[in-house]
């Protein structure tokens, strides 16, 4: 399909979403992706996580290129 992205969820984010991998139509930016995900999975609202686009940590506003892999990476605290 045209301009899809792969979303990979880690840790608590994967737990709240109930899945680790997801194919989505590219929302264009990381901020928009986050908005869409929170809308679809309201439990994500309470979790802080960072996004990596094609294995590079992204700031809040980063363009997502076509076919990109976006990882949702929450912090872990355990030791």
């Amino acid at each position: 399909m045209e301009n899809q992205i792969t979303v990979k969820a880690f840790g608590l984010v994967a737990e709240k979403m109930g899945l680790e991998n997801l194919l989505l139509v590219n929302p264009g930016t990381t901020q928009e992706l986050k908005n869409q995900l929170v809308k679809k999975y309201p439990e994500l609202q309470s979790v802080k996580f960072n996004l990596a686009v094609n294995k590079k940590m992204a700031s809040e506003q980063t363009d997502i290129p076509s076919g990109a892999e976006v990882a949702l990476l929450p912090p872990f605290s355990g030791g």
Binding site: G11, K48, N50, P74, P75, S77, G78, G79
Partner: peptide, 26 residues
């Protein structure tokens, strides 16, 4: 701080005591 600029609350992410862990992972 570059990895996680926003400090998560201490209780936001459950720890080993709450979620369990197989000793091999640590």
């Amino acid at each position: 701080r570059d990895l996680y600029p926003t400090m998560p609350s201490a209780t936001e992410i459950p720890n080993c005591a709450q979620t369990g862990v197989i000793g091999v992972l640590p």
